[in-house]
Each structure stands twice: as structure tokens, then as C-alpha cells.
Design a protein around this nucleic acid. Structure first.
Lengths: 239, 239
DNA sequence: ATTCGGGATATTGTATCCAGTCACGCCCAA
DNA sequence: TTGGGCGTGACTGGATACAATATCCCGAAT
């Protein structure tokens, strides 16, 4: 029988090793890691040359990323969008609606291995915090979320969340620089891990909600101070 | 300045009249209208010939639809997936999380024109119900949802909802045949319209939730009876 | 009769090529 | 010096051509 039914499992891309998929994942990772920042332009032929492939798979990867909200297409190249405040609010609104429930589901389904990985991610986050290692902290954060999301049995829910998280992640990296925000994040993670290991779905849900609200608050607070300092995060043209 | 910022508005496709977009919309409409049903195979070169264009835009449209969950790609053509029961449950779970809030937001932002369109959609649904016109009832349903979703200011939320609705819509068409289900639907629409015209966000939210729960219940009830009758909705191979 | 294997074929994936369009910069004039 | 028009080029969109591959069918051997 042809696999024409989704049957609950995540739909693996048709050819997982297709150039399109590899390129897409590569760019997505660069976005997650902040190696490509808002305002950057992505030109298909450029990337194609760098990778030694033709334009077509690159183009398809870029179009897919546009479709997923990571990029916007202009008449003059694809660019990473600089999200407006309303955009950020909108994304956080969706996250508030989805993530608490997803966390509750994950808490019920967590395997011992996933629990161990969560603990590891927390430990790494703490160490990174102590060492003031921003990149490592962000990496631990990603591992943490990827892990509990993998325990969510509803893959549509999980991947929807992942997409929206990624989109704010780019800008969130900036707010993570603030030590006070880092404290809040670490404390939040700690409590959530605790709820997860206790398999306490209700607590996981509630804590995830406050975690998101904290992230939102800290972002807008940071933005306000930057605004007051006359420094727009969008990095407008320099006079 | 290049329009590289999303700024709250829906990101119109770069070239709205591009072949890719036209084809994508065409196929999406056919799916919504049940003109393409689960199990059908879509072959790019075939569609391309029928439309008199090359494979490339068709292929890109199909890939995009895969990305949005409408299709799955196999090694031998793109097919409309036959959703498993778990898939349906999963989709309904996401809808339960998103639509009540979206309805509340829409109730606060509804324009008089949109209100009028909602009334019209309700009237059409009633007439279709009386005339036992299933297609027209489904069309009225689509108009209804498209209208209130257009009042949702968070376009990411709105389009996410639309995608998930479309995916169950295909299979929901089957359950709408049941007259009793139709009664429930009409009654639900009536109450929701009432909440909308009163701009009662809380009521809209609650009613939307029960509306979805009813839809879910009626689907699984219908499925159970079909199951008991030995007739699987997936329409397995005929001996 | 049934199963295993090999080749034909249908269909996707990738490369190259051509066309159209929009942005930017230059140049000229006021 | 500044504003506006026009040309040029960079980039995307679409078409055509080529390669890779999984599936299906048929035949042969057990």
C-alpha cells in the first residue's frame, strides 16, 4: 500500500535527503541560531553557487520558508522580516493558546529518556547562565523545547508551536542578553522540569503559560528601554 | 523602502497573480468543495498539460499544499491523505485551542459589513437546510467562517485556523449529510451570529467551543455507525 | 501455483535557459 | 544643487531538458 495516509505520524518529507530539504533545514538552523538576522537578504543564485547546486532546489527551499513564515519574498530577493510589535504580539498570542495545552499533553507522555534530556538541558542552561555564555544558553533552551515538544503526541500541534517559536526566537535572542531575564528563564525552566518529572499536567500547563507571559513581558520591557534610548531594534538606516 | 516588514498585515504573495498562486488556490478550492477526495492522485505533469503551463509552477503549488498539510507527497504522485481517526482528533484539538479565542477577537472587531455578510451566510444556510441542498449548505458554512475569520486581526491565527478547518472539511462534508447534524449546525450558527451582532466576545468564545465540540461529536458518532455497518469512510478497495 | 527478480515506465528531483520586472543609480536639466 | 526621467542590471518567475528512482508488471524458476 502506498503511504497515502498520515496515520498520526509526522509526515516525513517525500525524499528526506532531497537537496531541497537539506537546504531548507540548513537555512532554518541558521535562522534559529541567529546567524541570519532580520534585514539580511537571501538570493537563491548566491546560495546555489555557494553550495554548488542549481537555483531550483534553493528556490524551492526559500519558497517553503516563506510559506512557513520565516522569510518574506520581495521583488528583489528574499529577506528575513523585521517583525513589528504587532507581529510579535500576534505570535505570542498563538503561543499562549497552544503551548500550555501541549505542555500538559507532553507531561502525560514523557518517556524516561526525554525526562533525562530535559534535565540535561536544564543543567546546560544553568552552566551557560553561570558562564555568561549566551549562545549555549540559547542552545540549551532549544534543546529543552525540542525535547518536550517531541513528547507531544499531536504532531500538528507540536510543529505549529515550533514554527511560531522559531519566528520570535530570532528577536528573542536579543532580550536574552539581559541577566535579569536570564534569571527568570532559568527559574521558569526549573519549575517546568519539576512539573514534567512529576508528570503533573496541570502544573506544566500553568507554568508554561507564565513562562510565555514572562518572555513576552521581558521582550516588551526590553523594547521599551531600547526605544527610550533611541535605539530601535530594527536597526534603521544609519544617517 | 522595501516591504521587508510584515507589519501586521497578511503577507500577500509576492506576485498574487503568479501561476503558482493561481494553481494553488485552484486546487485548494477544489479540495474545499470536495471535488478532490481522499485517495485521489495529483500528478504535476498531468495538471500542467491540462492548464497549458509547464510542470514547474504546478509542482511548486503542490509542494506548498503539502507543506500546508492538504496533501502528502509519495514517490509516485501527490495524493490527498485519508486522515486516520487520530488525525481528526488532533486537528480538532488544535481547533478547540484556537477558534474560541479567535471568535472572541472577531466579535470585538466585527464591522457592519461583516455582520451583514454573517447574516446572509446564516440565511443561506437555513434556506439550504430547508431545500436539503448539501452543497449550498457547505458553501454557506464556508462563507460564514471566512467572514468571521476576516474580522480576526491576528492573521497568523486566522490562517492557521483556516488550514486546519480545510483539512477536516473534506471529511466533514460526509457527516453534514445527516439531517440531525444539520439541525445542530444551523442552531449553532444562529447562536453564534447572535453573539457576534451583540459584540459579546465571551459568548462568541463559548459558543464557538460548543460548536466545535458538536462537530467533533457528530463526526465520531457518524463514524461509529458507519463502522458498525461495516462501511469504512476511507472507502477501501472494492472486492 | 507461487515467489523472486529484472527491466520498462511513470513520476519526481535537479539543472540550465529564457523572459519579465522592478529597483537603483546615473545623468541631465532647471 | 536638487529633482526627475531613463537606462541598466540584478533578481525572480516560468519553461524546457535531463537524471534518478521507486513501482509495477511480467516472466521464469522452484
Amino acid at each position: 500500500m502506498t503511504p497515502d495516509t498520515l496515520d498520526g505520524r509526522a509526515p516525513l518529507p517525500l525524499r528526506p535527503n532531497s537537496l531541497r530539504e537539506q537546504i531548507r533545514e540548513s537555512i532554518r538552523r541558521q535562522l534559529q541560531h541567529g546567524e541570519i538576522t532580520p534585514g539580511d537578504r537571501l538570493v537563491d543564485v548566491e546560495i546555489a553557487n555557494k553550495l554548488g547546486v542549481s537555483r531550483m532546489p534553493v528556490r524551492e527551499a526559500l519558497l517553503q520558508l516563506v510559506n512557513e513564515g520565516y522569510l518574506v519574498g520581495t521583488t528583489r530577493g528574499f529577506v528575513v522580516p523585521t517583525l513589528s510589535l504587532k507581529d510579535i504580539q500576534d505570535i505570542f498570542e498563538v503561543r499562549r493558546l497552544l503551548e500550555p495545552q501541549a505542555a500538559a499533553n507532553a507531561a502525560r507522555n514523557l518517556t524516561p529518556e526525554q525526562e533525562a534530556t530535559l534535565r540535561e538541558a536544564l543543567a546546560r542552561a544553568k552552566k551557560a547562565h553561570a558562564a555568561r555564555d549566551l549562545d549555549e544558553l540559547a542552545a540549551a533552551n532549544r534543546l529543552f523545547r525540542a525535547t518536550w515538544l517531541s513528547a507531544e503526541p499531536n504532531w500538528r500541534l507540536a510543529s505549529t508551536i515550533q514554527r511560531f517559536v522559531d519566528q520570535v526566537q530570532i528577536v528573542r535572542l536579543g532580550t536574552l542578553k539581559d541577566p535579569e531575564t536570564q534569571d527568570v528563564v532559568i527559574a521558569g525552566l526549573e519549575k517546568i522540569v519539576d512539573a514534567f518529572v512529576r508528570r503533573d499536567a496541570a502544573a506544566a500547563s500553568a507554568l508554561m503559560m507564565t513562562f510565555i507571559l514572562d518572555a513576552e513581558r521581558s521582550f516588551f520591557a526590553a523594547h521599551a528601554t531600547r526605544e527610550a534610548a533611541g535605539d530601535n531594534y530594527q536597526r534603521h538606516a544609519i544617517p
